[in-house]
Design a protein around this nucleic acid. Sequence first.
RNA 1: GCCCAGGUGGCGGAAUCGGUAGACGCGCUGGUCUCAAACACCAGUGCCGCGAGGCAUGCCGGUUCGAUCCCGGCCCUGGGUACCA
Length: 920
Amino acid sequence: MEYNFREIEKKWQDWWSLNHTFRAENNSSKPKYYVLDMFPYPSGAGLHVGHPLGYIASDIFARYKRLCGYNVLHPMGYDAFGLPAEQYAIQTGQHPAVTTENNINRYRSQMDRIGFSFDWSREVRTCDPSYYKWTQWAFLKMFASWYDNSLGKARPIAELEALFAREGSRGADAACTQELDFSASEWLAFDEKKKSEVLMNYRIAYQGETTVNWCPALGTVLANDEVKEGVSERGGYPVEQKKMTQWQLRVSAYAGRLLDDLADLDWTDSLKDMQRNWIGRSQGAEMVFKAVNGDKQYDMTIFTTRADTVFGVTFMVLAPESEWVDKLTTPEQAAAVADYLAEVKKKTERERISQTHKVTGVFSGSYAINPLTGARVPVWISEYVLSGYGTGAIMAVPAHDSRDYAFAKHFNLPVIPLIEGCDVSEQSFDAKEGVMCNSGFLNGLTVKEAIPAAIDYVEAHGIGKRKVNYRLRDAIFSRQRYWGEPFPIYFKEGIATPMDESSLPLELPSIGNNYKPTEAGEPPLARAQGWEVDGWPIEKNTMPGFAGSSAYYLRYMDPHNDSALVSREADEYWRNVDLYIGGTEHATGHLIYSRFWNKFLYDLGYVCEKEPFKKLINQGMIQGRSNFVYRIKGTNTFVSLGLKDRYDTTELHVDVNIVHNDKLDLEAFKAWRPDFADAEFILEDGEYVCGWAVEKMSKSMYNVVNPDMICDTYGADTLRLYEMFLGPLEQSKPWDTKGIDGISRFLKKVWRMFYDRDAFVVTDEQPTPAQLKSLHKLIGKAREDIENFSYNTTVSAFMIAVNELGDCHSRAILEPLVIVLSPFAPHIAEELYHALGHEESVSYAAFPEYREEYTREDNCTYAVSFNGKTRFTVELSKSLAPAAVEEHVRSLDQTARYVGDGQIVKVIVVPGKIVNVVVR
RNA sequence: GCCCAGGUGGCGGAAUCGGUAGACGCGCUGGUCUCAAACACCAGUGCCGCGAGGCAUGCCGGUUCGAUCCCGGCCCUGGGUACCA
């Protein structure tokens, strides 16, 4: 019987499905383990070999954990709302639900072939009303909550109303969009509309005007993480800054907790760093400067991390969008300011980025008074100050800030150095070191001492206060799109009113086959007939992609529950994800939003863990490896790589699927495209050698390798092992089918340990010590490697073991070997395990124990010391007495090989330095 | 610019509390089997050199008896970020 992977793989996939082998139970006496993949967006192109990498890795771990006695939850689903299906709908008029369904079916069949141990009974799709009911539910909860800064948690909005009624705006330290000041009696006197406006300022899900990333080509706003280098992540269209009223989530209120709680997570440092930078905590102070425009005087608040440099302020700068601009522009400067604002406004985001560091600005005409020195300094307006950060206004200290310096030099403003001995004639001195001068009471202090001293002074004199600022902004939560979750909000007399929870899900209405925005520029939902509640219009925006993916890991715990996102029992059993595998591209998007969403639900008592993902592994990207042929210009003759320099050639991409080991399949090439049918070739050594390069895997480069094809040719087990063998999981690497034959050969060798032609050759004979040693070396290595996700070396360990054990047919060796192999190559392992007489799945076996004595029994470790200090250890044969070893070592005078008792040992000797050799 | 990660044969990659550099696989070379090919199996394979030997973990220094590994300074590649006061 030959190793027939086609038959075997189909057989066991069906068997697993029929027997519900991988169904996870919500009540079990076993310890739980939750292994999660980032669920895919089902795109039209289907899976290529890069997509399953992370799924294979997580599947190996899930199967391994089952063998170790855990009740494993390993679910899969689809992130099914999103732009591509909608773009396709706009072009074709086909309902995105249809496209999505087709794509999901394709994904499912591709995944099924690889033999994953997913519990498909728990599948979720974010576009299912029964699923997005809970996305809408969470939104309603956020709408009905505020963030209490003093308790550091979200609370029901009714409690805030009660506080306002008792003590006015001072009654609560609430996270808000704008600082408001009103008394209890003022609050009570507000009408409904005013009250709802005020509350909107505090809700965790709120509607407010903000500068957004507007993408005209997509006709929608985008979140900061959906914009890369000034263009949309999807499609690469230009994005501009625009003020719009949008739904937002008050993620910024959670910035401190999102940052602090990173410390306890088992994530890579680089990913934690990415989130830390994104959240961007900076400590400093807010300070009030009096600003004077004619006879009007204002208190203008600025934020700085360098309170110590306040004696060096020579001007102030406002962001162009700042509310101070209007107040502080003098009549004489009004025209110049208006021109400047107009110029800034028409720049696209991309232009702004490419023109970074180009100095622009305009004088407002007003002056500000330095609260410490009384100095009168001009107030300027410049785009290098951002409205969304701090207060949108800064004090400029050109001597010690390079941006202020560039501005001062450009507009010829004074520079006052504040640190002894620093030279600011060519550039600013930004470093936080040195001793202060020209700084009044701060003189003589080091910078590190001066910063807190200055803040203390400012606080003591009522000029300002300590303040921590975050770079993290609130998440813009509405999209002018059709294919997303509708908001369960309607506008009663213009007031945003939540729908009743019992009316959820609010299902997406049909809008015919036109998915474009309306002529009036309204979102597609404006086309829906009767999109209203009691005659009041329902919100026409939909939620963004990250809404549905923020809490899906909770839904898997209890996917069919109709009365809760997740029941308390299910949540308390599964708690959170033990291992999450996915790409780093979600570092500042999904992985922030999910943590925020979870913390919000935690605050309200719906979930029991404050973090969703305990351990996170980022698999690397699989890049494409393109092949090239070289056509001699003006001919249909192709020249092999080694000879191409002798001709004038054009490089052409060639489909990698008709190239094997960089050798072109000539017949397949002629058949590939009609114009190559009569191609001629100049060969080297009878073969056509192609060039190659690493590029992104894409259709246009003809370098897409489809996992189905690999499964057809080599089988799923070979694909799984090969993807892991390719290199470290977390590293990006090009796909290269070259080495796959080695894996295929390995599995055939495993097969031959069980079957020699048609005969089953497994015996009951006792294994030799050498065989046991090989087996246990493998068990120990596999255990260690799997726990460290070092799968590529595990595969090597399998090969070494099988090379050593090749002629062993002892059941006592083969059975553990099959169990250890099963997470990696589950189909062949299942087949062989059953061949050994088992009726249950190999998935229910126990991972074999590692016994060290088999590897160490005839070795002995010696420590070699120089001058009494242990320098290194050597392993020598036990049969050689320590004294003899020492004598031998002393007699050597160079680095040498010592051969004794069949063992080769290196003994490093430095003349006259060895003083001791001891048995450990 | 700033923050991370990483530079090892023809290729993917092993090996780091400092101790035989190149495991395992691919490729290549030779051989066995075959009418032949494929498959399979065996042997060899870092580079230079006929050889003895010499040179080898991005570059330059340092620490050490000994450095792919630790320290300092560069160069390059990949990722993140982009006027965050």
